[in-house]
Write a protein that binds this DNA or RNA. Structure first.
Length: 583
RNA sequence: GACCCCGUAGCUCAACUGGAUAGAGCAUCAGCCUUCUAAGCUGGUGGUUGCAGGUUCAAGUCCUGCCGGGGUCGCCA
């Protein structure tokens, strides 16, 4: 329970008391009542919209409601001022001790500060990456990977029971291509001169896979018809690719809890099972689709096919479940995938997809509603493209020429922490520029650096404090129990207010599934701290370390330690290591 | 043609799911280094939130219609 929630309870209590006293109708709906920090600091510590929300149902002017509430709130022990402003806001000014108390809470909570019970232990499944197992992860995967992972951490922090899931698309035609490509490399490893035909994967990374196969099976698959080796090689190749993918994921600090194989779902009859279920509900039929208007494919031929009634669940049209060769569409097995998740207990699911899958969102949401009788909800987060730049110039990439940038290359170039942080500095559905030169810059416009610098600076102060006061106890408990009443400067208290906002930021970001908000918040905290630091250059009295005043120093170190704590808490969600020195 | 995303300062982007005078960085202009890291800080300039309506105490945010940019559109995943 953070300070804002506490004050919201106080506001609700005031409403209830007023209702009991007859000043307001009983049973008013307070769900939309908020207590938040006002945008303008001069408005006080917190503001509530209660009077404006309740005015209409109470059939009273907002200011009249506000007057009644103000009277009661002014009597609250933590409140030193309550006034009506603007159209009916109630601005609350709190005792400084409330903020000092929150500072102690931050220190005692450590990096766990901001943890909440918003999720109440509810299971959430976050499916992300889910790249085809046909090669190493490239830069196009990087954003969804980092985003999904940070979102998972964020939801965990907000009290959800999170499962990180990877869906392996190992049943489609692309995997056949992979198997054939590996067979070529296998023949090559056994001494044949090969030529890579059009339509096969040319990547060098398949060489060791072919060699490993030759090592394991010898000449077993030479000169045999494809029908004999395709299935076993597919399995071998997919396993090798997934090893590759897992290594790449580890390099960016990502680790999934569950890997679900499409192939295994198909083999286990999961697709038939879920289709039977949908058929039983009358949601599957054989019909003919109209060609898309305005863009009729050349080879369009009208034919009856097996369709899912997606339209009944909000999609634009019904969607095919079977290809013309009789095998399942990707959509059909993906329904089985989501049904599988639902049966494993997930009523809340999140999928992270690339921008090119935007058109697929509705049908999958329709399917999830259908298979769960509307009990499960699927949120799909689309990650827009990342434009890779160097000094403002686009980095040339070509898949054909093999010069596409792998995720590993990027991590090797700038480091895991930078990749992770930068990927989270934009809303997921907005395009992102990733400039290799800019992220190496050490300046204010490089947010990674700027935030890390604030954290390092804080630790630098703590280190210097021990030079000045060698016997100082810098443990969180000791600092929290220190003479915090010595913190009286407006900027100091302002910084505490900013830190106290962290739990709200966590909750709001978790609810919106928007981890990027944390990046902006951390940047602001860093700015607040850097500002206070620099003020100490001009005004000796505001410096953190005051040789002649051990008590004041202790109090200020508590603030410094709290800044470091909150930054570390935020970076932990991002999976970024907070540094204590900038080197 | 349909659907999805985006449109905010010269540039790159925020805006706490509808709140008060729309905020940061870059750029630009003016300042601050015998002192805990100047790798930094302070201040100024800069806006018809693409356009036009609507909803209400209140709209950048929600609804409708346009304009512009991107993405997608049966048998790819």
């Amino acid at each position: 329970m953070n300070v804002f929630k506490q004050m919201r309870s106080a506001v609700l209590a005031a409403v209830e008391a007023e209702a009991k006293a007859g000043g307001l109708p009983a049973g008013l709906d307070c769900a939309r009542v908020t207590v938040e920090p006002p945008r303008e600091a001069s408005h006080g510590d917190m503001a509530t919209n209660a009077a404006m929300i309740l005015a209409k149902p109470a059939s009273m002017p907002p200011r009249a409601v506000a007057e009644k509430l103000v009277k009661r709130l002014a009597a609250h022990g933590d409140v030193v001022g309550a006034e009506i402003a603007g159209p009916g806001f109630i601005n609350l000014r709190l005792k400084d001790d409330v903020w000092r108390g929150e500072l102690a809470t931050i220190l005692r909570s450590g990096p766990g500060y901001g943890d909440s019970d918003l999720g109440a232990g509810k299971p959430v499944n976050v499916e992300y990456v889910s790249a085809n197992p046909t090669g190493p992860l490239h830069i196009g995967h990087a954003r969804g990977t980092v985003y999904g992972d940070a979102l998972a951490s964020l939801l965990h922090k907000a009290g959800f029971k999170v499962t990180r899931e990877y869906y392996i698309n190992d049943a489609g035609a692309q995997v056949d291509v992979l198997a054939r490509s590996v067979h070529l490399r296998y023949r090559e490893a056994l001494g044949e001169a090969i030529e890579i035909p059009e339509g096969a994967y040319p990547g060098e990374y398949l060489k060791p896979v072919g060699a490993a196969l030759a090592q394991r099976d010898g000449k077993k698959w030479l000169g045999k018809p494809e029908s004999e080796w395709l299935a076993p090689l597919r399995k071998f190749a997919v396993a090798a690719m997934m090893d590759l993918v897992r290594d790449d994921l580890a390099a960016v600090g990502v680790r999934h809890d569950v890997f679900t194989s499409e192939q295994q779902l198909v083999e286990a009859g999961a697709v038939e099972a879920v289709l039977a279920e949908l058929t039983r509900r009358g949601l599957v039929y054989t019909g003919v689709l109209d060609p898309p208007k305005g863009k009729k494919p050349e080879d369009w031929e009208s034919r009856p096919q097996t369709l899912f009634r997606a339209q009944q669940f909000g999609d634009d049209t019904d969607r095919p479940l079977k290809k013309s060769d009789g095998s399942w569409t990707y959509f059909a097995s993906d329904i089985a995938n989501h049904f599988d998740k639902y049966r494993r207990g997930f009523e809340e699911m999140i999928d992270v997809w690339g921008a090119d899958h935007g058109g697929y969102v509705r049908r999958m949401q329709a399917a999830v509603r259908a298979i769960s009788d509307g009990k499960a909800a699927l949120d799909v987060k689309i990650c827009q493209l990342v434009k890779l730049l160097d000094k403002g110039e686009p980095v040339k990439m070509s898949k054909r020429a093999g010069t596409f940038v792998t995720l590993r290359d990027l991590v090797d170039e700038v480091g895991k922490d930078v990749v992770r942080f930068v990927m989270l500095t934009r809303k997921n559905d907005a395009p992102l520029d990733f400039d290799l030169a800019a992220v190496k810059e050490q300046s204010r416009d490089n947010p990674v650096w700027y935030v890390q610098y604030a954290h390092a600076r804080a630790h630098s102060v703590l280190r210097n404090a021990l030079v000045e006061f060698p016997d100082l106890d810098l443990s969180a408990g000791a600092l929290a129990g220190g003479p915090l009443e010595r913190l009286t400067d407006g900027d100091e208290l302002g910084l505490i207010r900013q830190l106290a906002n962290w739990p709200r930021v966590v909750d709001a970001a978790a609810e919106a599934h928007e981890p990027h908000r944390l990046a902006f918040y951390l940047y602001d905290v860093a700015a607040g701290f850097h500002g206070l630091w620099t003020r100490g250059r001009d005004e000796g009295g505001i410096r953190f370390l005051i040789r002649e005043d051990r008590a004041l120093t202790t109090a200020r170190l508590a603030l410094v330690a709290a800044v470091a704590t909150v930054i570390a808490s935020g970076l932990a969600v991002f999976g970024v290591e907070p540094v204590k020195e900038m080197r």
